[in-house]
Design a protein around this nucleic acid. Structure first.
Length: 195
DNA sequence: ACACGGATACTA
DNA sequence: AGTATCCGTGTC
């Protein structure tokens, strides 16, 4: 289980290093293959830029808290609060499912493994994540937490532009596992950086 | 390409 | 109360 110290670092560092880690959510598990970083300060795409309630969330909660909100009137989004020198959020955007596939298929009503968690709204539906999990501490309950990358493995991470935003759109703060077939959208090769 | 549809934070 | 905006998905 990832300790709180992992999340007591900058959003960019946490977002990059979460690639290859697992998200454990009750009966279901998936490897994280896509994340995005949002800085509380100086990042116009972060909710903190326009929402006082989100700024209050940052003050009120410790690093490792789940920040969950409803988007486009349809989908729940799972973020993790991080607090280093820079504070902000990591949006969990896609998983490669590894356990609990049958339950995910039932909730998503699709069979294709690549369609289960290949998007921030898809994965919350597959894992049954809703408002009730907002502010949950993801560093204390082994049923709802992150697990570290296997020590002996190597993960190549690619950065490109964040998806679907208008402000601060040029920042390459989306991180994906290289060549993963489980991401929400293909990497924009012309803008991608290996990191 | 476009419909879907709710929370939040504005304007009055 | 009315309006603009929003880190998406599924189906057309």
């Amino acid at each position: 289980m990832l300790r709180r110290a992992f999340f007591e670092r900058d959003p960019l560092t946490c977002a990059r290093e979460l690639i290859g880690c697992e998200l454990l959510w009750d009966q279901c598990v998936g490897m994280i293959v896509e994340t995005e970083a949002y800085n509380a300060r100086g990042d116009e795409a972060c909710h903190c830029f326009v929402r006082p309630s989100t700024r209050a969330f940052v003050e009120r909660n410790r690093a490792g808290a789940a920040y969950i909100y409803f988007n486009y009137g349809v989908h729940w989004m799972l973020n993790v609060l991080v607090k280093g020198a820079e504070r902000g959020f990591v949006l969990i955007r896609a998983l490669e499912p590894t356990r609990g596939l049958a339950l995910m298929r039932k909730r998503r009503r699709v069979d294709d493994v690549r369609q289960l968690c290949s998007g921030p709204g898809k994965l919350t539906q597959a894992l049954a994540i809703t408002r009730q999990h907002d502010q949950m501490d993801l560093c204390s309950d082994p049923r709802f937490c992150f697990s570290a990358r296997p020590a002996d493995s190597k993960f190549e991470v690619v950065a490109d532009e964040r998806i679907g935003i208008r402000r601060s759109a040029e920042l390459r703060w989306r991180f994906t596992l290289r060549a993963s077939g489980f991401v929400s959208r293909p990497v924009k090769a012309s803008r991608a950086l290996t990191c």
